[in-house]
Computed example of a mutant assay.
Amino acid sequence: MRSEGTGPLAKAAGLLAVGAVVAAAWLAGRSAWAAQAGFSLLTLAIVIGMLAGNTVYPRVAVRCHAGMLFCKGPLLRLGIMLYGFRLTLGQVLDVGLASFAADALMLASTFLLTCWLGLRWLKMERQTVLLMGAGSSICGAAAVIATAPVLRAGADRVAVAVATVVIYGTAGIFLYPQMHAWHWWPLSDGQFGVYIGSSVHEVAQVVAAGKAINAAVADIAVTTKMIRVMMLAPFLLLLSLWLGRRGAPAPQGQTGQGEKEGEGRIVIPWFAFVFIGVMLFNSLNLLPAAWVAALVQADTWLLAMAMAALGLSTHFSAIRQAGIKPLLLGLLVFAWLVGVGGLVQVLLAA
């Protein structure tokens, strides 16, 4: 790459490239197979973006660089903030203590297990492990891309983490309804909904798995899942404080001295606090329902643009270089979510 595209034209070109990928993802999402598989617009956006990013996009990448940075930066943070319009305080309180307990326990245990397995056993690179832990324990790809600015993680590492949560979260769409049908766990429909919401990766995957059983399970599963989403803000703050004490990971491409220079620096994820503020504001019901629906739809498109930009700037060579370890770590964490998530519900029901 000779130089990086800058200025208004480069930003416009990047936005146009991202918009084309999102449009393709939207069209693909309207197909019957995508709906049955539970593929969300965000998932399709990054998959199509990665395909384009490794075929046609490299020819124009230099001219689009500024637009890519804009989509992965300001647009992403705005999308995370507007995500608060999907929640109200009443929804959070209505699901009961069992959902809070299950979400908190699964989030903490899954993140800590991911870190221990990835760092101590598999000896993986720290940023990738932390991103995978965030995605597996909170809300899939959305948590990965929200955590990336706090870690100052590169696009390649983010893509590896997103790939694992998409793969294993999609497997959960098919597994959980079968476990319900086969009565693997002695749980009521309500308890099974909490089980899905507290252990499946993505919001869209929770919806798909719950609806494959019945509407009641789906409603409880989605509400439980949204509590996990709400926990993203305090998680990012705690992660930032922890990194500040230990020394923040160096930006991609820097080693050794880069980590020393970042030591003691706390990156405040201010957009996470705005996310909570938006949720509390939404709880007041001051805006017409149609406005809130429009804001939620706009937020979906903003996040889709961020995912598409991430896909376009990711190279398969980086994922190949990551090797089998991320897939193995993702599999082990998926087994933990399925097994321990069900056991937690059994114990809470006792």
Rank of each mutant, 00 (worst) to 15 (best):
G73Y: 13
L75V: 12
R77V: 08
R77W: 05
L78Q: 05
L78M: 11
G79H: 07
G79Y: 02
I80D: 12
I80G: 13
M81L: 11
M81P: 05
Y83R: 03
Y83Q: 09
Y83H: 08
F85Q: 03
R86W: 02
L87R: 08
L87N: 11
L89G: 02
L89P: 00
Q91W: 06
V92G: 03
V92N: 02
L93D: 01
L93F: 09
D94N: 15
D94L: 15
D94S: 15
D94R: 15
V95A: 14
V95W: 11
V95C: 13
G96R: 10
G96A: 09
G96M: 09
L97Y: 02
L97F: 07
A98V: 00
S99N: 01
S99V: 03
S99A: 15
F100D: 06
F100M: 09
A101W: 00
A101M: 01
A101R: 00
A102D: 02
A102S: 12
A102V: 06
A102H: 04
A102N: 05
A102P: 03
D103K: 10
A104R: 12
L107R: 07
L107G: 03
A108L: 14
A108R: 05
A108F: 12
S109W: 00
S109K: 03
S109I: 01
S109C: 02
T110G: 01
T110M: 01
L113A: 11
L113G: 01
L113F: 03
T114K: 00
T114N: 00
